[in-house]
Design a protein around this nucleic acid. Sequence first.
DNA 1: GTCTATAATATGATAGAC
DNA 2: GTCTATCATATTATAGAC
Lengths: 220, 220
Amino acid sequence: MALPRAARTQRRTRIQEAKEEQILEAALEVFSLHGFRGATVDQIAEVAGMSKPNLLYYFRTKETMHRALITRVLDTWLDPLREFDAEGNPVSEIRSYIRRKLEMARDFPRESRLFANEILQGAPNIEDELKGPLKALVDEKAEVIRAWAKAGKIAKCDPYHLIFSIWSTTQHYADFDVQVRAVLGQDQAGAGRFEDAARFLEQLFLNGLHISEQPAQASS
Amino acid sequence: MALPRAARTQRRTRIQEAKEEQILEAALEVFSLHGFRGATVDQIAEVAGMSKPNLLYYFRTKETMHRALITRVLDTWLDPLREFDAEGNPVSEIRSYIRRKLEMARDFPRESRLFANEILQGAPNIEDELKGPLKALVDEKAEVIRAWAKAGKIAKCDPYHLIFSIWSTTQHYADFDVQVRAVLGQDQAGAGRFEDAARFLEQLFLNGLHISEQPAQASS
DNA sequence: GTCTATAATATGATAGAC
DNA sequence: GTCTATCATATTATAGAC
């Protein structure tokens, strides 16, 4: 009943897809915590609840698994930026971008850490994707921000560094979660920290860009 | 001529210290790029320019090396925050804190990545230090910020999240350097990117906290 | 498709000569 | 102190039975 491997890439049964999902779920858990080299197939198999040879039947190598995960995560990871709308209102666009990124950090911390591990270790597997699709998307959105600034809708600022700062501040709550919890202590480290972070970041970025929901006082 | 190991921790010759430095320098290079589990003693020995047994004569285990590095880095890593002065002017204190952190990201990216790797992978070796000395220092400085806000010198904001956002935005340029370079492209990714980042972050934080060097217009 | 067994290699650490 | 040789184990991956 085994399909030849070539065919499996074309059409897979539901069971096969479910197994592959199960494996990738486990792989995400392990890779996100230990990085590529630190993760072992043994661990992944154990988390996935199957034997190592069985796992390797679905993904021939550790690298195949990692590549599949990285590709998928990189794609969905950029969705919030794709939604960034040139026609929208700068205040609500920037605010909801921050909110979506923070929600992803809260709801998908493993994906964030997988990505962070990869970048941190020199991005050996995704350099092309960073320089290609990622750069293209950021270039496009940077142009939107620049146009807003030119039209006086937000303060003049470097749009690339604005995007970097939104990425870093929001992903911090996933990637450095252990440190955030340690510093905040048990009392403040509950789920409410995401609401606190959202409030703070909204204030920081909206004021930092001279955006105000009430029309600003004329001062010049 | 070999001193017993017990004595070496008490007093070391210059040659021994130099060797240990040489090893830690190599270890920093390798650990910062691959994390603890991903790094190999072989690699470290090669970078240090000595044989593996020779290296292991100075540091009996891989973990000893890692611990020595982490302890040292964590200590110097907090120096900029220690300099944060309650008696100083909020504008110049926050501005120079950002600048110092950004300079560290530029001049000591490996130290930043070593730390990031450790936190990202759950901080198995330094949880105590995070919950102890680090938390204590942050608590102290958060109180300073809170006092400034109470006195109306800066906008009211959550001081912990302010500190987190300064950490994350500045360290981003070390930890995610590969991504930053990929997005900026060859033209903008030169050394000048740190100046651009400094300008942007200064604007973001000083405006974001309603701090202005010129006295603000009365508007209420 | 899944298993047990195992090959092939990588890796942390040590033994013992010099 | 430094070396060569090597042990013990961990790890990726495969072979072959079922």
